[in-house]
């Protein structure tokens, strides 16, 4: 479970100082596992900042973000690495999410070394299964990020996130750049995996129809806070 308690986030003032610019203020939000939530909001409202807070990429100015009861800020070393595995992310621009100088295979295989996911001889089989799951050919692994299509690399980005078997997945406009058929295919796959593994999903999107179709509850990010969107909410579990 991801818990945001009184979270505020401000960015520093301009080049010559000045007052910090608040993006989020006093946000309390609980994201349980096994539920699919949507987050809507205009550009600049703080949706991506919220994603970075959840992923532990930025520290809140006030309050705390806890993953499975642990505060991001208090963690170091192997505990932090293990926590990272719990929350994964699929960004809007997956072609920029892979090192341009590493082959896609090298980028994927790094995960096994980082987290010691499985014994060496089983790694290729597991990698192959992850690619099969998202409908990609293994030949893709010999290519570099600029040599594959947007749809392929987005699916590979999803495969990378799912390979770590996270408890929570954040999709940040992950299907916005794709055509409708690939968009639907990716969302269907995410929902299947979420149901199978009891994984929580946060879908950050501008598309209210997508949010309505895929999510159990939809929130909006505006006025420096997170608010539930009336009419698009199903029962939220206690906790």
């Amino acid at each position: 479970m991801i818990v945001l308690e009184g979270v505020g986030l401000s960015y520093p003032g301009g080049l010559f100082g000045g007052a910090p610019k608040p993006v989020l203020e006093n946000v309390d939000w609980v994201l349980p596992e096994g539920r699919v939530f949507g987050l809507l909001g205009p550009s600049g409202a703080g949706k991506s900042s919220l994603a970075k807070l959840i992923l532990g990429l930025v520290a809140p100015t006030t309050g705390r973000v806890r993953i499975g009861g642990r505060d991001w800020r208090a963690q170091r070393g192997t505990v932090l690495r293990a926590m990272r595995r719990l929350v994964q992310y699929v960004p809007q621009h997956p072609e920029a999410a892979f090192n341009p100088r590493l082959s896609l295979g090298a980028a994927m295989r790094e995960l096994f070394r980082l987290h010691d996911l499985c014994p060496g001889e089983r790694r290729e089989a597991q990698l192959g299964a992850a690619l099969d799951r998202v409908g990609l050919d293994r030949a893709l692994l010999t290519r570099f990020p600029r040599q594959v299509s947007g749809g392929e690399i987005q699916r590979l980005s999803l495969a990378r996130a799912l390979l770590l078997e996270p408890r929570y997945l954040v999709l940040d406009e992950a299907t916005a750049m794709l055509d409708v058929s690939i968009q639907a295919r990716i969302m269907r796959l995410v929902l299947e995996v979420a149901a199978e593994r009891g994984m929580g999903v946060l879908v950050i999107t501008h598309d209210i129809h997508l949010a309505h179709a895929a999510c159990e509850a939809v929130y909006t990010c505006e006025n420096r806070g997170v608010h539930v969107l009336p009419g698009l909410v199903q029962q939220q579990p206690a906790g």
Binding site: L55, L57, L80, R81, A82, R84, R85, V87, Q88, Y89, P91, H93, A96, A97, F98, N99, P100, E110, L111, L114, H115, R160, L164
Partner: peptide, 17 residues
């Protein structure tokens, strides 16, 4: 601040790596 560096942090890579 590049996306691929942020993604490396997300998947658990440390500063030295």
């Amino acid at each position: 601040e590049a996306d691929f560096i942020l993604m490396e942090r997300v998947v658990g890579a440390g500063p030295l790596r």
